[in-house]
Amino acid sequence: MDTYEDQKALLRRHRDTLYIAGTGTMILGLWSMAEGGLNMLATSSLQEGMSTGWEQVISSTQSIVAMLVFMILLMLIQVYVGVCARRESRGEERGSFYLVLAGIFVVLDVLFIGVEVFLATQSEYSVDETIVHLTISILSAFSDLQLIVSCLRARRLSAALEG
């Protein structure tokens, strides 16, 4: 049977994992933002619009702004999840809302992996890009999943030790 010291050590391990997973979620959120932004600049329909007329330019600008806002929102949510995880790893009490958000991200990542795999079968899709996107999506899903698991384990252990 684990001793009290063993359980405290296990709690420290889970909190450490939570801290690392939270940091990973933040970094991956910033990465997604940077990647999306660069992608947009590289394949911007604004460039196409400029060659066809001002109406097209305005329409393209609106869609770009909408996408930017969406991407920033996603990034901020991921950063929020990461910050909450890091704070909880230091013993601060946080609610469970950020865990729900992390769970949603796991689902989205899994869906995105599925989409990537499907699109990869299309002949015009770049293999290199697909591999990178898949890797990031898998890492992101793993990081969020680990965040949820380590948080729940840490909470359970903490309650057991206090009780």
Binding site: E5, D6, K8, A9, L10, R12, R13, D16
Partner: peptide
């Protein structure tokens, strides 16, 4: 303190 070899034992 927590040494690296101690598996999170203080």
């Amino acid at each position: 303190y927590l040494p690296a070899w101690a598996e999170y034992h203080e």
